[in-house]
Amino acid sequence: MRWNSHGRRLVYGSDYVNVWLDDVDIPGIGRVDHHVLTMPRASTTAVVTDDNDRMLLLWRHRFITDSWGWEVPAGWTDPGEEPADAIRREVEEETGWRPGKVEPLTGYNALSGLSTMRFSSFHATECRYLGPPTDRSEASRVEWISTEDVIELAAAGEITDGPSLTAISYYLGIHRRARK
């Protein structure tokens, strides 16, 4: 069944998020007000690996959930910027490592029932160390962690960030299987 929109009203808007109230007709239910979040910029993530079967992760605090956890590098795509270029920039700023090769992993809608938020995930390899991260606000630690330990961290609940879990899971499952 397809919902039909009869209009949209902006409730709040910023450079980071817009909150809309849509007047929608849901078959079998009728017309209702439905909140919709739109993001002015697309998001990118990357699973960064090396030749030693390790992943580059950030240990960071998220104030919204008041939680600490491991995450993959991620960030916004600036207007007119290609997502692959955005993740190259983000990896370098957040970790101090410059990717040599960046390949698409997958793209997905993070909250399809509520938001247009779109993520593009990449696999970055052949990294060269440049020095400490230039964006010191992103992470308390940046570490290369063995893939086996990353799996254990995820199983222990130390990777709770949705985009990180999605990118890592896709890389470890679908991506690796498709390359065999």
Rank of each mutant, 00 (worst) to 15 (best):
M1V: 05
S5G: 12
H6I: 03
G7V: 07
V11F: 11
Y12I: 05
S14M: 07
S14D: 11
Y16K: 13
V17H: 04
N18W: 14
W20T: 01
L21Y: 06
D22C: 14
D23W: 09
D23A: 09
D25N: 14
I26Y: 06
P27Y: 05
I29Q: 12
R31S: 13
R31C: 13
V32H: 08
H34N: 07
L37N: 11
M39W: 10
M39D: 07
M39K: 04
M39I: 04
R41H: 15
A42N: 05
S43D: 15
T44L: 03
V48Y: 00
D50R: 04
N52A: 15
N52P: 02
D53S: 14
R54T: 06
L57Q: 06
R60L: 06
H61S: 09
F63P: 06
D66A: 13
S67Q: 15
W68E: 08
E71K: 08
V72W: 06
V72T: 15
P73D: 03
D78T: 05
P79G: 06
P79C: 08
P83S: 04
D85E: 14
A86H: 04
R89K: 10
E93N: 11
G96F: 03
W97T: 02
W97G: 02
W97Y: 14
G100R: 03
E103R: 08
L105Y: 07
L105V: 06
G107D: 14
G107H: 14
N109E: 12
N109S: 12
A110N: 10
S112Y: 11
G113Y: 05
R118S: 13
R118G: 09
F119H: 10
F122A: 04
L130D: 08
P133K: 02
T134S: 15
R136S: 11
S137I: 02
E138P: 00
E143R: 08
E143D: 12
I145C: 01
S146W: 02
I151L: 11
L153K: 13
A154Q: 10
I159F: 02
T160K: 07
T160Q: 08
S164P: 01
L165G: 15
Y170A: 08
Y170H: 15
Y170F: 15
I174D: 09
A178H: 08
R179L: 15
K180L: 08
K180P: 09
